[in-house]
Amino acid sequence: MASPPPAVLHADAAPTLDLLTVPQVMARLQLSRSAVDDLLRTGQLASITLGRARRVPADFIHTRLEQDAA
Rank of each mutant, 00 (worst) to 15 (best):
I48G: 11
Q24P: 12
I61G: 10
Q67R: 09
R41Q: 09
Q30P: 00
G43C: 10
V25L: 08
V25N: 03
P15H: 07
T21E: 05
V8M: 05
V8Q: 11
Q24L: 11
S47P: 02
L40P: 03
S34W: 01
L39E: 12
A35L: 09
T21H: 01
A69R: 15
S3N: 04
Q30F: 08
A11H: 07
L50M: 13
D59L: 15
L45G: 00
L9H: 03
L65Q: 15
L45V: 05
L40I: 14
I61F: 11
P4C: 01
A14M: 10
H62K: 14
R33A: 01
G43D: 13
A11W: 07
T42A: 03
L19V: 10
V8H: 06
D37S: 05
L50D: 10
G43T: 13
P4Q: 02
A13T: 08
A35F: 03
D37E: 14
A11F: 13
P5N: 04
V36I: 15
I48S: 08
V56M: 06
S3A: 13
A69M: 11
T49H: 06
A70G: 13
L29A: 08
F60Y: 14
G43S: 09
A58E: 13
V22Y: 02
G43V: 12
L50P: 01
S34F: 04
S3C: 06
L20W: 13
T49N: 06
A46E: 14
R33F: 00
A2F: 01
H10P: 00
T63V: 11
I48Q: 08
V22N: 03
A69E: 13
A14S: 07
D37V: 00
A14L: 09
L50C: 10
A58F: 05
I48E: 09
M26Y: 02
L50V: 15
D59P: 02
T21F: 01
L20N: 08
A58C: 04
A7M: 09
R28K: 13
L9V: 10
A35G: 01
V22K: 04
G51D: 02
L17F: 09
A35H: 06
T21N: 01
M26W: 03
T21Y: 04
L45T: 01
V36M: 05
Q30N: 15
G51P: 07
R64D: 10
L17Y: 07
Q44E: 11
L29G: 03
L17I: 15
H10F: 13
P5Q: 07
L29V: 11
Q30M: 14
L39G: 00
R41D: 05
V25G: 05
P23L: 13
L19E: 10
L40R: 03
A53T: 15
D18E: 08
L17A: 03
L31G: 00
P5K: 06
Q30C: 12
S47M: 07
A70S: 11
